[in-house]
Design a protein around this nucleic acid. Sequence first.
RNA 1: GGCGAGGUAGCUCAGUUGGUUAGAGCACAGGAUUCAUAACCCUGAGGUCACGAGUUCAAAUCUCGUUCUCGCUACCA
Length: 708
Amino acid sequence: MNTPKRYLITAALPYANGLKHIGHLAGAYLPADIYVRYLKAQKRDVVFVCGSDEHGTAIPIQATKEGTTAQAIIDKYHPIIEQNFKDLGIEFDIYHRTSDKLHHETASEFFKTLEGNGDLETKTSLQYFDEATNTFLADRYIKGTCPNCGHNEAFGDQCEKCGKSLSPEELINPVSTLSGNAPIKKETTHWYLPLNKHEAFLREWILNQHQNDWRPAVVGQCKSWIEGGLQPRAVTRDLDWGVKVPVAGGDGKVLYVWFDAPIGYISATKQWAINNNKDWQPYWKDADTKLVHFIGKDNIVFHCIIFPVMLKLHGNILPESVPANEFMNLEGDKMSTSRGWSIEMDDYINQWIKKENGGTGLADSLRFYLTSISPESKDSEFTWKGFQESVNGELVSIFANFVNRTWVLMHKLCNGKVPPIHPDLLDDEDKALLTTVQETKDKVTALLEQYKFREAQFEVIHLARIGNQYMQKKEPWILAKSLESDTTAQAKINNCMHGCLQLCANLSILINPFLPFTAKRMCHLMKVVDKMLDWENAGKFNLLKVGYTLRAPELLFRKIEDVEIEAQLAKLQSLLTTKNSTMDTATPQAESASEEKALKPEIVFDDFGKIDLRVGTILEAKKVEKADKLLELYVDLGFEKRTILSGIAMHFSPESLVGKQVVVVANLAPRKMRGIESKGMILLAEDAQGKLHFVQPQEVIASGSSIS
RNA sequence: GGCGAGGUAGCUCAGUUGGUUAGAGCACAGGAUUCAUAACCCUGAGGUCACGAGUUCAAAUCUCGUUCUCGCUACCA
């Protein structure tokens, strides 16, 4: 394989509206960091960029809610997230931010270039507009009832409760969050990126050129988009938080956050170049640069479809690979910040690394476990028990124990110095050790080049296991008992310990990308400079000079105690049991949920009088074909029988509904769904668990009875 | 419903273009050992490769169907 001249590695920009959890860490930042550390050990020319994504509508909304400003929010989270990464050994060359002036200039230039080349289209459409505040309403500024789960505080782009992506038009009873009024529709003009014009390019580039070297899930996801028919995507919004649209007609508009965020990789590179007196341009323009995006699977479409189209139009290079990870679950359930079901990096740092018995070893312990369960090919699951077993059973017992027993024996049997080799007494096992190290190096190298970090780390641990086996066979502690009777005993001990020590030196090099703090501590034990960690040194057995005095043994890691694991589990458990009472106040999003329960605007009696509510009896019920959520009900209203569709198939089986009495909005305008006309609507109440209950009379009464 | 990714030992996962007896780690059982953080080392037990057909001399691997999980998408008055 040709070695690229330089590398540009990106990790998804974290959204600066809150803390990030270990799922994010395992998904993008940790693998990226491992890859970069490996490349740097190979002395490759590499820049690792990341930064805060600080635009989008969620941030100003959150600001309004918390009674502060958008600027204050990003200024709060940007440094915390940056520090969290540092504490976990994620070492970016630059951690930039999209609110920076340099980014605004870069994104503006990018947009202007595309616009100037005629690569963007404009389209005028009707959008929600708040007359009271005289502003167009971005998705996040509109709330209403979620059509999916019935949650009545869903946003225009997404329902926080069920996680469903929405468009504002889908919301039931939309309300402006600025004024509380119902918005009107008004014409506005926006710029669009016509993805449909680039289908041939995408098809060729992804489905032909990369169908084998990209992960199946990534290619599959792209294929799904391409086959599904690409649509033009709006790249601007009516909002005043973000990068201003820099062309005529752009007043009051900003670049849509997904358009401006990936450009953040470019502006971050520029800032890095300024800081280091380098030229940024080759990194984004020269064909001999290898660009790699590390992301989670939720970001595939942006990094494989949209951003590449933007890059191509703008004359930049395309990513060589996008090794997207799947998701990491936690103790049997999806991680979710809003539900509190997650382990935030900040929490882990405070509860483990920064405790008295903590330290950077625990940063590496987390890195180790997360890599060992890295969701590279399918969703994986973080469990505290697994964390404990993995750390205690492999990291401590195999790896650290080998280093420790080597050090202890070396001090006991070799005066704390690197012993000399006695070539005449070297046997096959001694020689095989060197070969094994070289083979392991080759394996690890190949695996890292293929982004198979889980397996690569396993190989390094396996090498330590081989060290244990080697020592067990040689039994230097037994030889030590026969020093007087066997004149070759000391020489044999020396050979064994020399091999073990050189193996430790090799282990420190190979483990360095994964566990950088540990590698540094091993250098300290060996009294060597960090330069020894250069990848080219792996496979050599002369890294520690004969006669060199090494430091006294120190434990690299501590074990994870049962009580600590129980405490963490108890914390999650308490979340489960108190969820219903605390959920509404646990997080800012949830706070908005309680707010959402606020009453709708007052109506007069006449408004109510327009609604004709009737008691109905369900005569038949069946699933609507080709729809997951729809049930087709045949309801007796006394004066007539009619078909009503209801999106409750996930909650009730059709058989269980026959004979049930329900309350029907009888004079609702008919609506066609899935080809079937629905005449009315059935009322349901939702409890705190999200379970649906029919509203019905206490006793069975005549169908058609009116309700008032 | 459409599309995508998965289903291999109790658990976490490998299995490249179809080729002896389907592998590894953890956990479990037995043994050995004491230099080491009750760590290490050896041995063992364990799987109808989701299910059913088909192609083939030969299928975990290719084809078709069924089923379950996850994601995207449609459906939600």
